[in-house]
């Protein structure tokens, strides 16, 4: 029998070690956020958002085309990814209890872990090869394919939060199933679905790997989906791995912009979630 003192010491030691885990996990976060803000802020100005990139050594310039490019890529991805992802999620919540539903759910879960670079090659094969050149469309397809599995699962979870009693109440009023699904269940889950969609958009905006060989990059403004396009993430990558000091500075500033975009979307998602829960519970 070990003495009680020893056991107590051991208990405190292990608690302290686990507490250390919290610190070790959050330290990189603190360091990262601090550096992105402190190094990125000096380079931010209005022209950083509006100007085109400048060559090495030339002062000024910005990432305006990359901001626009990311916006276009994500919007295009949403056109395909949001309806499919949300729709599949509604399917899983409403009709997902059978064998087919369980298969779809498992597939979505497993597929949501597939490396994004792999999906980039898929988009390359589906769009770049037949078109013979890189394009925003190819990148958007990759982002959309990445969106669907995660979005469908999160949509399902949030639609399932709608109490079954509401569905019953509607059916008992003589409202048909489909109308009950659309007008009662989905209407009630709307805040949650918006949340899930915003989070999916935030993830898509931060993707880099699948864009490297689909949208490539572009030094100029581009609004044509069939042309190579700049994006914030690829621009950060190119700046960061360059050997030039002033490009490094731009990488940090662009990272700050990206972080603000992603953070803002996450914040909106939280607000949407809170509003939907606040008014229903």
């Amino acid at each position: 029998m070990r003495s009680l003192l020893l056991r107590r010491i051991r208990n405190h030691l292990m608690t302290a070690l686990c507490g250390l885990g919290v610190l070790l996990a959050l330290a990189p976060l603190a360091s990262l956020l601090w550096l992105v803000v402190s190094r990125g802020l000096p380079g931010l100005s209005l022209s950083f958002f509006t100007a085109l990139p400048t060559p090495v050594g030339e002062p000024g310039g910005g990432v305006g085309n990359a901001v626009v490019g990311t916006g276009m890529l994500v919007s295009l991805a949403c056109l395909l990814g949001l309806p499919l992802g949300v729709g599949a999620g509604v399917f899983l919540a409403e009709r997902g209890d059978g064998l087919f539903g369980r298969t779809v759910r498992f597939t979505a879960e497993v597929f949501s872990g597939v490396p994004s670079i792999v999906v980039g090659i898929v988009a390359y094969g589906l769009v770049v090869v037949p078109m013979h050149h890189f394009s925003a469309l190819a990148g958007a397809l990759a982002l959309a394919l990445l969106m669907v599995p995660t979005l469908s699962r999160s949509t399902e979870e949030l639609v399932r939060l709608v109490p079954g009693s509401l569905r019953e109440a509607s059916l008992a009023l003589g409202v048909p199933q489909w109308k009950t699904s659309l007008r009662i269940v989905l209407r009630t889950a709307r805040g949650g679905i918006v949340t899930a969609a915003l989070l999916a958009v935030a993830r898509a905006a931060g993707e880099t790997a699948p864009l490297l060989f689909t949208t490539l990059n572009n030094q100029y403004w581009n609004l044509r989906p069939d042309q190579p396009t700049a994006s914030l993430t690829v621009q950060i990558f190119n700046y960061a791995i360059s050997p030039y000091e002033d490009w490094h500075q731009k990488a940090w500033s662009a990272a700050l912009v990206l972080l603000l975009v992603v953070g803002g979307l996450n914040l909106l998602a939280r607000i949407a979630m809170r509003n939907s829960l606040g008014s229903h519970r």
Binding site: L84, T103, V118, V122, V148
Partner: peptide, 26 residues
């Protein structure tokens, strides 16, 4: 409504199939 939802669910399976085929093709 059931048919539409089933199609949307099936799209997930279709996507995975397309991914595999496209990868193998490249």
């Amino acid at each position: 409504w059931s048919g539409l939802l089933g199609l949307l669910g099936g799209a997930v399976l279709l996507i995975v199939g397309v991914v595999v085929l496209a990868l193998v093709h490249v």
